[in-house]
Design a protein around this nucleic acid. Structure first.
Lengths: 124, 124
DNA sequence: TTTAGTGTCATAATACACTATGACACTATC
DNA sequence: GATAGTGTCATAGTGTATTATGACACTAAA
């Protein structure tokens, strides 16, 4: 896992885990790395990981069992699939459209994306 | 001008001015607001605006004339049109494609963007 | 019951973005 | 020359993300 300097670390950790859930690498019921373990792995402080987990627990995508650890919640994937998509379309897409306009981007520039969209359609 | 909490203020100021240049609201030779004036306008500290201007000067998109102010450089628009586009395609687009994949987004979801791209083509 | 592994909380220290403010050199204009 | 407007630099203070570290309650397993 790599960190960018544009976004705060604890949010990047959250995004990284959300990604694992959305791609199915983590499924409901799976245990995620302990606070200390992940902190050591990615060379970050315990408290920073704890902050990510607290946020995700509050979002209802992971559950905590006292003395044991954190687990992907049952509703996690469906909840994320809905919320993250809505957020993307409402907040990210408008920015992308604006960028496409001012930078005069073409269909050719977006060819890789369009191809991905076609693949998505075929996989339904 | 509004500030988001996701990005640092001095970079948002830079983005806002870059946008004005790319859309032609500011053209080469135009004087941009003085450090003090813009700071007062958007209710931000002088030093923060100064930091944005210093960055943009270093990027070669604005020039300084001692005791007078900052002006949009001659190469600004062309330089931005090239660099910002390259940066978008190399850094932003891959993230968008990845999001489209994990969120299983469809062509319908991206319809507004595709329409914008068609408008761009027709305007060439 | 002991041990090791969990989350959790509290404290202090560091780094950095941002603010507040004053001072100075430069330029144009009256 | 005086004045007002430029950028520029320096200093100090605030807020917050992150680090470092210790301590405690809980749980599972030896």
């Amino acid at each position: 896992m790599e960190f960018g300097d544009h976004k705060t670390i604890f949010l990047q950790i959250r995004d990284w885990l959300v990604d694992q859930i959305l791609t199915g690498k983590l499924v409901p019921g799976d245990r995620i790395p302990s606070v200390r373990e992940l902190a050591a792995d990615i060379e970050v402080n315990r408290n920073t990981v704890m902050r990510s987990y607290s946020l995700m627990e509050q979002e209802g995508i992971i559950d905590n069992r006292r003395g044991i650890g954190f687990f992907v919640s049952e509703q996690a994937r469906q909840r994320l699939a809905t919320d993250e998509k809505a957020q993307f379309i409402e907040e990210e897409l408008p920015k992308i459209i604006h960028q496409a306009k001012v930078l005069r981007l073409t269909l050719a520039d977006f060819q890789p994306l369009i191809q991905q969209l076609h693949e998505n359609e075929n996989q339904q």
